[in-house]
Simulated scan of single mutants.
Amino acid sequence: LVISFHISAREDFSVQATISWLLSEIFGVQNVSIVAEEDIQTISKDESASLLDNVVNTVNESLAFASKYGLQSPETTLGSTEILEAISRCNSTGGPSGRHWVLDPVDGTLGFVRGDQYAVALALIEDGKVVLGVLGCPNYPVKTELLNYHSWHHQTMAQSSLTTPDTGGKGCVLYAKSGSGEAWLQSLIDGEKMLEWPNRARLIRVSSIDDPALATLCEPVERANSNHSFTAGLAHSVGLRKQPLRVHSMVKYAAIARGDAEIFMKFAKCGYKEKIWDHAAGVVIVEEAGGVVTDAGGRPLDFSKGMYLEGLDRGIIACSGVTLHEKFIGAVYASWDSSNL
């Protein structure tokens, strides 16, 4: 567990510093406000010197490849001072006005440590509304037919379909702009094929399935912050027949946007507060791919209240279409009084 924590902390801070540095180079330090999961306090302590050294090395290694993706690489190697400055810029609390980037550097820590599903999630919020979302899913196979729903959460992707020849690339990036009506998927390419990277995106759409008996439900792996028994009851009452797909991280939103699943429900247990960085990027991608995301009362999620989804009505329901969504909203109202939440 200690080793896993240190690996996760290194990657969290490394991704956060890398994205903060890149955004600041593109838009200017004075124009960048970032709401992010990690703060400067932990890595600034004397006992965290080795962690900081590892982060510095990882960031420099990553940024060395930036130019191959059309981004700016540093003219000289970044030192600990520059890395700490980049991390310290991620101190915004968001709110109803202004422009704020929302970042979850490694969403799905357990998935990352286990070599399973995780995501790097970045969204842009303007005056309380999500206007842009990007999800990097390094272990999500590009080809839908390579997925195995019944064993996905028991196997690492390296042990399953990603070893199959001609997979079309390991991992993908999904992105969407609010109001565009378009969501895009870009495969992650290694080696010389990086040069083709900007030209390999394709449009994605949600599934057209609206029969609950044929639909696939996504839900969180961890039971600590989601009520599996309540979602199972809802699924049964609506008529779902397939086994749920339990997935770490915002890859659940990616699965719906790509048409690999039709429903994602999350009903947090009492006292748990949903953070905006766990949903912002995924929500806009699903919506622009043709899906619907609301709280369990049917209201749009409110990203204008700061770091948390304040005022959330019971839970979150994301569906590939209006028909399924309405059925689940109705099921919530019908079963809520008898639930154990």
Rank of each mutant, 00 (worst) to 15 (best):
L1F: 08
L1G: 15
H6R: 08
I7A: 14
A9Q: 11
R10C: 09
S14K: 06
T18L: 06
I19M: 01
S20Q: 12
S20G: 13
S20Y: 07
W21K: 08
W21M: 07
L23D: 00
I26E: 14
N31T: 04
V32M: 07
I34W: 02
I34K: 03
E37Y: 01
E38V: 07
E38T: 11
D39W: 03
S44T: 12
D46Y: 06
E47A: 10
L51P: 13
L52V: 06
N54T: 10
V56W: 03
T58R: 14
N60I: 05
N60H: 07
E61G: 15
S62R: 15
L63V: 05
Y69T: 09
T77L: 11
G79H: 05
T81E: 14
L84F: 07
R89T: 11
S92E: 09
S97K: 14
R99F: 02
W101K: 06
V102D: 00
L103H: 08
P105N: 02
D107I: 04
G111R: 02
F112R: 13
R114P: 03
R114M: 12
G115A: 11
A123W: 00
L124H: 00
E126A: 05
D127A: 03
G128F: 03
L132I: 05
L132S: 13
G133L: 04
L135Q: 10
G136R: 06
P138G: 11
Y140F: 06
P141K: 09
V142C: 08
H154M: 11
H154G: 10
Q155L: 10
Q159D: 14
S160D: 14
T163Q: 13
T163G: 12
G168R: 11
G168K: 12
C172W: 01
V173F: 06
V173N: 08
L174E: 12
A176C: 06
S180E: 15
E182R: 11
Q186Y: 05
L188P: 00
E192M: 06
P198T: 11
R200D: 00
I204V: 15
S207L: 01
S207M: 02
S208E: 15
S208I: 09
D211K: 08
P212I: 12
A213N: 08
A213C: 05
A215Y: 01
T216I: 13
L217A: 10
S226H: 15
H228W: 13
S229T: 14
A235V: 00
A235Y: 01
R241E: 14
R241Q: 15
R241G: 12
V247N: 09
H248W: 07
S249F: 00
M250C: 10
M250L: 10
V251C: 09
A255K: 04
A261T: 12
E262P: 04
F264C: 15
M265A: 04
M265C: 13
G271C: 06
G271F: 05
Y272W: 07
K273V: 12
K275N: 09
I276W: 01
W277F: 14
W277V: 05
W277L: 05
D278Y: 04
A281S: 12
G282S: 07
V283P: 03
I285W: 04
V286M: 06
E288N: 05
A289H: 12
A289E: 10
V292F: 08
V293T: 12
V293H: 04
G298C: 09
K305I: 02
G306T: 13
M307V: 13
D313S: 13
K327A: 14
F328G: 00
A331D: 08
V332D: 01
V332K: 00
V332S: 01
A334V: 08
S339M: 10
L341F: 08
L341S: 12
